[in-house]
Design a protein around this nucleic acid. Structure first.
Lengths: 225, 225
DNA sequence: CTCTCGATTAAACAGTTGTTTAATACGACT
DNA sequence: AGTCGTATTAAACAACTGTTTAATCGAGAG
């Protein structure tokens, strides 16, 4: 029998999307076996129990995590503004559009929200390189050296704007009028806004810091009285 | 009998932390009743079913959270910059707490990540008023009228920066060096950065939009060749 | 006292869960 | 043919779920 269509493999492939969608506890072995068109006992026969099936599924997800949206290779002359825009567009494409998110990413995201020890490796191999790449773009956008804290915070501000459209997608949908919902999740609109917002912030940050110190003083005076 | 110690109230208070920790499906009525030291049938007697107990718990969480960190009342002369800073600080205080997450916050975050029936009411009575308040501050910060889409996107950019430190707290902790972790979650540092970043962005957004149009053209030309 | 009625209780219920069992089917080998 | 070992099956299992039931309690009213 072809290995790809073996009972064990069918279970593994069917389990992935279901675990990704519903989580470990909410996914049922009956649902998985139905989807895989195998007998109910197959999971225990091949994997021992549900838990070990889940672990094998996570491992498979890691292995199969194909670089579906690879980073473009930029020439030396590419403007940092262009780089940032493409970076933001890439982030949004990877995480925002729920429908097209492959189940492998969904499963890993699930692990990330509730970090375990296995998550550490994921951070090092997946998130940190992405983040470092972003920070290098930020460096190009400013004309002065930044402290480690500053550039990290700027990075989180940009990432935060992107991820918000995934984590809070449900609430955002409820908050905007249904008629224009598509507009708010439109990839190009989002990319343009987040890019422009962030560039505007980075460019203007230097001037603001000084002014803000004054504002803080005003705020303090108001609190006093 | 004291109202606070009534059976119904004991159930409500016991349910909050359990729902927050385990989610709706994973929390069991027996566990809640045990914690509240009441009979198993009490939930159905007082609340009808588990679901309605959950909804009442979410409502309670929202009320208690808003009570603990109320909005300041601003005078007419208060600078919008000050307002934004206090808004951001309030958001962060309500949402971002490093070590121990109060169960009220945990429950609200659960609703954002995976909205249930309780969420619609939560949006209308809690999130939307907060968001509208933010948008009015944004209006004061710009000197020109914004489209609905623009001001909403700006609002999401600010909220997204704040919430990122809750949803991605685990990953952020893993990404920054442990020695300086406290620094990255320091309330004042965060408040200052997000406020300054957002003000800088809003102030500069107008100029950037024009420049970005040119950049887009450059990007297109680069893609062509 | 008795009566009443909401509050509380233990028990039972019906449904679902993951897992196990025992029987059977199937193919490879002698 | 018969034998062996693996794969697959339907059924049963025990534990747990939310909910319902019917009995009991307990305090206030007549």
């Amino acid at each position: 029998m072809n290995r790809d269509e073996s009972t064990k493999n069918r279970v593994l492939l069917a389990a992935g999307p279901i675990f990704a969608r519903k989580g470990f506890a909410q996914a049922t072995v009956r649902e998985i076996c139905d989807a895989a068109n195998v007998n109910l006992a197959s999971i225990n026969y091949y994997f021992g129990d549900k838990q070990r099936l889940y672990i094998e599924t996570v491992i498979l997800a890691r292995e199969q995590r194909a670089e579906q949206f690879p980073f473009p290779s930029w020439s030396d002359e590419t403007l940092p503004e262009v780089k940032l825009k493409e970076f933001v567009g890439l982030m949004l494409r990877r995480v925002v559009v729920m429908q097209t998110v492959p189940w492998q990413v969904g499963l890993l995201m699930r692990e990330i929200l509730k970090p375990t020890e296995a998550c550490q490796q994921l951070v090092e191999e997946y998130f940190r390189p992405i983040f470092e790449r972003l920070l290098r773009i930020v460096d190009e956008l400013v004309d002065r050296p930044l402290t480690t804290l500053q550039r990290t915070q700027i990075g989180f501000s940009i990432i935060g704007q992107c991820l918000h459209y995934r984590f809070s997608a449900g609430v955002i949908s409820m908050m905007v009028e249904e008629k224009r919902r598509q507009e708010y999740f439109d990839l190009e609109n989002l990319t343009n806004h987040i890019t422009e917002f962030s560039i505007a912030a980075i460019r203007n940050l230097h001037d603001i810091e000084a002014a803000q110190a004054e504002t803080t003083a005003v705020s303090a005076r108001e609190t006093d009285k």
